[in-house]
Design a protein around this nucleic acid. Structure first.
Length: 665
DNA sequence: CCCCCCCC
């Protein structure tokens, strides 16, 4: 096997010329600095004619060295690279390898190819610089720095085309100019903490090589905030680069930029179209209903979902969820320290506790027409005590479905839904609450009103020509607390076929069914009078009642219900449990009344449970598979039970008959 | 130098 290197390529490249996808041999590597995110390797590369030690590997390729994939003597095709002058006065040029394809592993090649001579800076100025482009296998020009002659990279170049790809930026070169489009711009945010106070805004930039977050603090915040506009293209230079904290960004870059007093920004007006715009991957609203919301999933989840990103973030969970969290983390090969886990478990189980763990945030790109918009609501975040402003807008599309999108802060306040604008959102967070899905904006979510996209025009046409009046299924509809509602009715057979309850978080469904049995024994109990605590009290037989959870005795108590029952429909039946409020609506009396009956009128008490048998309700259930002594069983909880609204029930019946028979009634 | 993404 012979390997053909691109002889003479280094000469062209190191003279600032173009060379498309040169084939080179790796002759050695050396770690030059740092560790972790700052680690960087210097390479000795050869094109068979020259060898160059002023070559560096882009950090995102470090793993190829560490795993041994890129061993000495490997023959590689350099798919993308840049050169950069690191000492402007001395004209010291380095080559940075950004993307490579390994054509042959070092073990297979086994030797140095040819007899390369060491490339020196002197060679760079040798008269023999025949910058004849070598034969190009691929005519697409490599995105490299164009010849610089003796120019320094400074602000005088802002109007020229000499720019660096974002993917090539690193803390180790500071002479660069990027030409980037603003994908997203935050509001100005202020902070005040032990280290001081200030304000900032940040923006997400992209070009055809990649993306990067840039932040402007204090003076720079004031200086650039008004100038920076979303979707515009700017030449930007002289920022500081530092490793990105992956905990807080989902942008694909190891670094982020900070504006400094020297930062130069100028708008690119002439050929901005060469810089790509934000790419959306719209999901029809009806399809969002089938997407996985935020969740903790087992191994293999990647294949089940698309648009799923892994984020490490602070989240509030209840202690009952913590064990599941830990199991899931282990299964997903995430790790949590024992101390942190213990800290979590030490927290009062009734208080949401702060833990950090890997959470799968489900993000979706969607576009829809704003059919309606609620007023701005103010609320105080339980977790942080912050005052928040939100606005829920209902979006529809031609898939015949509607979904709620929550806007926050400034975006919520300035939004005007009166003209039914088209809204496109990239990276909206898909969440599920009480069995219905909705979208919420994150700071990273890109929201565009009436963007100039084909989809916008298509939707506008659809909406203005009848779409506005179409029958729409709202996948964010609250079938919640008071049950029934517009949620789809499922039979027990369908629930089984759909494997409801098999997921980690349980599933919600509505069902029309009859109570075939109620368990009256122990259906009412004396509970701890503390508002949040519903623990069953132990009668001390001395007029006092003891709560094990609160670890104290009380002279008083409140009655609560815990009703076991069987529910049947024509396709099957299910043992269910109804807690206090749901049990009250089934039995038609309050827990206090039922407690009194239990105490003073046993006959009436028994009668109550008899009478309710065979009553029909629209139930809303939450069901989840649980394991009791090695036996898997569905645990089904009644979220609500409401009397049948026969007008609604008949409408559903008619609809399903139509669907089954194809006959218009 | 921020790092919150919330509520029912």
């Amino acid at each position: 096997m012979s390997y053909k290197l691109s002889e003479g390529a280094l000469e062209v490249i190191m003279n600032g010329g173009r060379y498309d996808k040169p084939v080179m041999q790796i002759l050695g590597n050396k770690k030059i600095q740092g560790s972790g995110a700052n680690e960087r390797f210097r390479l000795l590369v050869s094109d068979g004619k020259h060898s160059l030690s002023f070559a560096m590997l882009a950090t995102q390729l470090n793993d190829k060295l560490k795993t041994g994939e890129l061993s000495d003597y490997s023959v590689v095709q350099v798919d993308r690279f840049i050169t950069s002058i690191i000492k402007p006065n001395a004209e010291k040029r380095v080559m940075i390898l950004l993307e490579i394809t390994i054509l042959a592993p070092g073990s297979e090649v086994g030797k140095k190819l040819g007899n390369p001579q060491t490339w020196t800076e002197d060679s760079a100025h040798a008269p023999s610089q025949a910058v004849t482009p070598a034969p190009q296998a691929n005519p697409r020009p490599a995105p490299i720095v164009k010849p610089t002659s003796n120019q320094q990279l400074d602000s005088s170049m802002l109007s020229s085309q000499m720019t660096h790809p974002i993917a090539s930026l690193s803390p180790y070169q500071n002479k660069w100019v990027i030409k980037a489009r603003v994908m997203n711009k935050s509001a100005i945010r202020t902070w005040s903490n032990a280290r001081g106070e200030g304000k900032l805004f940040s923006m997400d930039l992209c070009d055809d090589s990649g993306e990067i977050r840039a932040t402007a603090f204090k003076n720079e915040c004031d200086k650039f905030y008004d100038m920076i506009e979303v979707d515009k293209v700017y030449y930007i230079s002289r920022c500081i680069l530092k490793p990105a904290n992956k905990q807080f960004t989902s942008l694909k870059n190891d670094y982020e930029m900070t504006f400094t007093a020297d930062t130069v920004v100028s708008e690119c007006v002439e050929d901005a179209s060469t810089v790509p715009s934000v790419k959306f991957d719209f999901v029809p609203i009806s399809e969002i209903a089938n997407r996985s919301p935020d969740s903790l999933l087992g191994p293999g989840f990647e294949s089940q979902c698309t648009n799923v990103f892994f984020e490490f973030q602070f989240t509030y969970v209840h202690l009952s969820d913590v064990l599941t969290v830990k199991e899931n983390m282990q299964r997903c090969n995430l790790h949590i320290s024992e101390k942190k886990f213990k800290d979590m478990c030490d927290v009062n189980p009734h208080v949401a506790c702060r833990v950090d763990y890997g959470l799968i945030t489900s993000k979706v790109d969607m576009i829809g027409v704003c059919k309606s918009a609620a007023d701005v609501q103010e609320l105080t975040a339980k977790s942080t005590g912050r005052l928040l402003k939100k606005r829920e807008v209902t979006l529809v599309d031609s898939s015949g479905a509607a979904i709620t999108l929550t806007l926050w802060g400034n975006e919520a306040e300035k939004f005007d839904g009166s003209t039914n604008p088209v809204i496109a959102a990239k990276g909206a967070r898909l969440t599920e609450f009480n069995g219905s899905k909705s979208l919420s904006c994150l700071s990273s979510t890109m929201v565009r009103l009436n963007p100039d996209l084909p989809e916008t025009h298509r939707l506008r046409g659809w909406y203005d020509n009848g779409g506005a009046d179409c029958d729409i299924v709202n996948i964010s509809a609250r079938s919640g607390a008071y049950g029934g509602g517009s949620g789809e009715w499922v039979t027990f057979a369908e629930a089984e076929a759909r494997q409801l309850g098999a997921g980690e978080r349980g599933d919600y469904f509505c069902l029309l069914g009859a109570l075939t049995f109620t368990f009256s024994d122990n259906a009412v109990y004396k509970a701890c009078p503390q508002e949040q605590c519903n623990k069953k009290l132990i009668d001390q037989e001395n007029g006092l009642y003891r709560c094990e959870k609160c670890n104290r005795e009380y002279p008083n108590y409140k009655y609560r219900l815990l009703l076991g029952a069987n529910v049947s429909d024509p396709t099957g039946d299910q043992r269910v449990t109804a807690f206090n409020e749901a049990a009250e609506s089934i039995l038609g009396k309050t827990a206090a009344e039922i407690g009194q009956m239990f105490e003073y009128d046993k006959a009436a008490y028994s009668q109550l449970f008899e009478e309710v048998k065979f009553k029909t309700f629209v139930f809303k259930f939450r069901t989840k598979m649980e394991t009791y002594s090695d036996e898997a069983r569905l645990k089904t909880i009644v979220m609500s039970a409401t009397p049948v609204d026969y007008k609604d029930a008949n409408a559903r019946l008619v609809k399903s008959i139509k669907a089954l028979s194809g006959v218009e009634l």
